[in-house]
Every structure is written in structure tokens, then in C-alpha cells.
């Protein structure tokens, strides 16, 4: 039966991921028996989970900023106005053309000093850098999706005497959305992974807590394997969500 085979393959796919996670659990267990700590085995988790709250907060705030920036810059880049197009083009290319870490350091180290004197908390700096960087990639996705709409659709809207706003709302955005969602999902995963960089500007996310734990209690293997598992458990559901969206799109078109 092809259906049963398919199901088996599916189960096996996840089975190996589960086995992998178990293997990491066993590795942590072995590490604990070889170098037994004085405290309970999972005493590290509460501290790492405190970092998890920061990671999630950053991901959500960064994604919100990135979403707004991506839509505004993406629409502006498709605009007929040459100055608007040039300025947004400059923004997009600068943020896509340089390293996100340099952008983060620039915002965190340069802005508080003269001539800017704009002091930001690490959280604000992190959200700004993540949002502007991922927003620039998102803007290209939005631009591509708008560009992919057949010109007949736009001509028809004009023929129906729709205002530009109504045309955006009723014709362009609903169709562009289908193309936008899967790449946006991928960008969200990239954003989640990039939040680990804020540990380098003293923001106490999961990675930062891990580095601090390594210094205070040691147990390096256990700490970093736990961190990997935490990120994986956050990111993998998103990956599965993106695949589901992609299947929906194939089905829709």
C-alpha cells in the first residue's frame, strides 16, 4: 500500500530526529555521570529558560519591526517615484550587503558616542539591528511578489477605476501574500537564529546565559548541548510550518 509506505517514511523521518535528540540527552547523561556536579542534573534549565524568554521577546519584537520595514520598503521599492525608490534601494543594499554583526555593533557601539549621543539599551539595539537587517531581506521578497503579479491584474483594476489604495488592498496584497508567506517563514527562522548574536552585546538571551554558565559552573558540554536543543525545538516547528505553507501554495496554484 503506497499510503502505508508514505506513513512509514514519515514516521521514520521524525524517528531519527527523536533518536538524535535522545542521543544528545544520553550524551548529557554520560557527561553528568563522568563529571557529576554537586547539584541536581537539570539545575541549569531554569537559568537557560530565563534566557529563552529574552530570545523569544527579541524574536517577536524583531519580527514585528522587520515585517513593518519589509512591507514599507518593499512597496516603496516598487514605487514609480525615483527618489523614494533610490533611497529604499540604498537602505536594502546596505543592510543586505554588510554583515549583521557589524550592523549590530555599529548600532550598539557607535550610536551612544558623539556625534550621535543616542544611547540605546542592549534590547533596543538588538531589536533595531535584527529588524532592519531581516526587514531588508523581506523588502526584496515583497518587491518580488508585487513584481510577479500579472500586469493584466493591475490594468483591470485601473479599468475598474479602483484607487491605488483599493487596488493594493483588494488585488495586489491578497495575491502577493501567497508568494510572501513561505519566504517570510524562512526569514523568521533566520531571525530566530540571528538573535543569538545579541549575546555579544551583553543581552542575556539563551546563548549569553550559556556563556555565563560556562564561566560560573563549567559543565561546558551539557550547557551547549542544552542550548542547541532549545534552539532546535524553537526553530524546527517553524521549518515544518514553512513546508506546510509551501505545500498549500503548490496546491493553490
Amino acid at each position: 500500500m503506497p499510503n502505508e509506505d508514505h506513513l512509514l517514511v514519515k514516521i521514520r523521518n521524525y524517528a531519527f530526529l527523536v533518536i538524535g535528540l535522545l542521543a544528545i540527552g544520553i550524551a548529557i547523561g554520560v557527561e553528568l555521570t563522568v563529571n557529576p556536579p554537586e547539584t541536581a542534573p537539570f539545575d541549569l534549565l531554569p537559568i537557560l529558560l530565563r534566557g529563552l524568554a529574552v530570545t523569544i521577546e527579541l524574536t517577536l519584537l524583531g519580527a514585528a519591526l522587520a515585517l513593518v520595514v519589509a512591507i514599507v520598503a518593499g512597496v516603496a521599492r516598487s514605487s514609480g517615484h525615483i527618489i523614494v525608490r533610490t533611497i529604499t534601494g540604498f537602505y536594502v543594499e546596505v543592510f543586505r550587503g554588510t554583515s549583521i554583526l557589524v550592523q549590530l555593533f555599529w548600532i550598539f557601539f557607535v550610536l551612544p558616542l558623539p556625534p550621535f549621543n543616542l544611547s540605546l539599551t542592549p534590547l533596543q539595539a538588538g531589536v533595531l539591528a535584527l529588524g532592519l537587517n531581516v526587514g531588508a531581506y523581506g523588502a526584496e521578497v515583497v518587491r518580488g511578489a508585487i513584481g510577479a503579479i500579472p500586469s493584466g491584474q493591475i490594468e483591470a483594476s485601473i479599468a475598474l477605476n479602483m484607487s491605488p489604495g483599493l487596488m493594493m488592498r483588494r488585488v495586489i496584497i491578497p495575491q502577493a501574500m501567497v508568494r510572501i508567506l513561505p519566504p517570510f517563514g524562512n526569514l523568521l527562522i533566520e531571525l530566530l537564529k540571528a538573535t543569538s548574536l545579541v549575546s555579544l552585546i551583553t543581552l542575556s538571551d539563551v546563548t549569553f546565559q550559556g556563556l555565563a554558565l560556562r564561566q560560573s559552573v563549567g559543565r561546558t558540554t551539557e550547557v551547549f548541548l542544552l542550548i542547541l536543543v532549545i534552539y532546535f525545538l524553537l526553530a524546527y516547528p517553524l521549518t515544518l510550518g514553512v513546508r506546510w505553507l509551501e505545500r498549500q501554495r503548490q496546491w493553490a496554484t
Partner: peptide, 8 residues
């Protein structure tokens, strides 16, 4: 793929 390069 699902975990950050920095942690790796």
C-alpha cells in the same frame, strides 16, 4: 540548519 551558527 535549525540551530545558530554562533552556538555551533
Amino acid at each position: 540548519r535549525s540551530t545558530p551558527l554562533l552556538v555551533q
